[in-house]
Design a protein around this nucleic acid. Structure first.
Lengths: 117, 117
DNA sequence: CGAGGTACCTTGCATGGCATGGTACCTGGT
DNA sequence: ACCAGGTACCATGCCATGCAAGGTACCTCG
């Protein structure tokens, strides 16, 4: 259990983390641990290696990212992930659905006692 | 696969539907099919009986809702669900986390090429 | 008394986050 | 030469939860 947020965010991240990663890759190639850091910069998105690596493998298997192994200035080689055309398309699809979903949740949360929509 | 939205919304709903239901119950007791209808009023939240009934059973088991069987004016009796204090607390906790989560996703989606936060 | 509508519920599966544990590379100290 | 510690990658197994499919029961109407 994640102490910084508890049980709720873990379920929330389901199906969203994937697209946050794709979004981060718009800015250029990134490697696993780097992505972990950028996600954790927004604390509610903090996750672990046990989440990110299976996720990245899946993205690769589905052709949404390409990978390239590169030497590190200090440490073991890093696997850099780059968006493919398919990845860009998937991200675009999500960007279309997300606002609808977000507003729906806001709607349910913020309209007390039979407020008109 | 849900034709009205595809694979994305189904994963998005995970862990959120529960709180949308709790939010709907703030307005007073509701029964299963009624909740289905109110969720479907926002199309991205459309779901099925196979989702809602296990969910409601779980909420009851966890003490977030109370239930009461009542006769229907026409048809079989309906099981009405009411928020408990625990349910209200869970909803409040979610209402605290959700904006953080929502803004985080917006952040990742909307900040191109190294925009400062 | 059967057909159709309403309503409840269960079973089994698929998805995806997570804890845990393991491997390998590189550097720096002794 | 060797080992400790940091960095980085990856796999296994579990659990929560949405969903399709299928089942039961109540009520009304012809």
């Amino acid at each position: 259990m994640n102490e910084a947020g508890g049980r709720v965010p873990s379920q929330l991240r389901k199906g969203v983390l994937e697209y946050c990663v794709l979004a981060l890759l718009r800015d250029g190639p990134k490697y696993g641990v780097e992505l972990l850091g950028e996600l954790a910069a927004v604390s509610v998105m903090t996750t672990s290696q046990g989440t990110i690596y299976p996720l990245l493998s899946r993205l690769r298997r589905e052709g949404l990212v390409d990978t390239r192994l590169r030497e590190s200035p200090s440490g073991p080689p890093r696997r850099y992930y780059t968006l493919t055309a398919g990845g860009r398309a998937a991200l675009g699809e999500f960007a279309g659905v997300w606002p609808l979903f977000r507003d729906a949740v806001d709607h349910f949360l913020n309209h007390p006692q039979g407020d008109p929509v």
